[in-house]
Amino acid sequence: MNRTFDIKHYRGFFGITCLCLVILYGPLIIVMVYSFNDSVSITNWGGVSLRWYIEIFTGLESAKFKAAAWNSFTIAIMAATVSTVIATAASIGMIRGGNFKGKFASFALISLPIMVPEIVTAVATLIFFSTIGFKLGTLSILVAHTVFCIPFAYLPISARLQGIDASYEEAAQDLFANRWMTFRYVLMPIMWPGILAGFLLAFIISLDDFIITNFIKGAGIETLPTAIFGSVKQGIKPNIMALSTLLLLFSIALVTLSYFIGKRGEANQKSQQ
């Protein structure tokens, strides 16, 4: 194809896109590279080594990080599970519940956690918990995360549900399935890529959360982000770089997984229609 004149082409846009990618990935790659730095001083390069990785698992602070990681992962799994269930129910209610007064308000309420700035949510939650005497700790973090994750799970689930033809459910009902059976045997099998994507998204959001967690965790509990933050405040140390790299790779792996599940689900859907 003759490319001497392409109406869509603007000189420099490709360059800026590359710049954009460099800016986005640069810092992360640098951190990854330096996490293998053999030298204690992070400014001088001392050769490649895994010492910092070993240190996170066995060194002075390893107990702290292990506890923090345990907290982060358990909270994330529980928060993601509960918020996914709530979000799935909500999307069925919103998308297959017909038109009703207050549907818009309901949607606004479900999206509220995304609309409100995170720091406001953090303050409000702290004030609320302390007023009702809710002890600050793992449970308080779990509750706050679950609520905060609902709209994030809701988005992919409802998007998927929107795209499903309502005639499958009608056919199921015509063939004697009640509402629960319709959901279990027809809706859910077709919806599951969306539900899984919602779960993964909620999981990552909870795992990564800093601001809200920092506010309401109370003394003595750390999650990975708060532990990392506390450590960074005292200066960036190499073991932090290693820990960051691990977390980084884990997040990317999760996202890639979610992406491929989504693609497979889409391919299935297309061939069925």
Binding site: L28, L207, S244, L247
Partner: peptide, 9 residues
């Protein structure tokens, strides 16, 4: 998708 804290750090 990488933790905002890590990205900022």
């Amino acid at each position: 998708w990488v933790n905002l804290l890590i990205r900022t750090v």
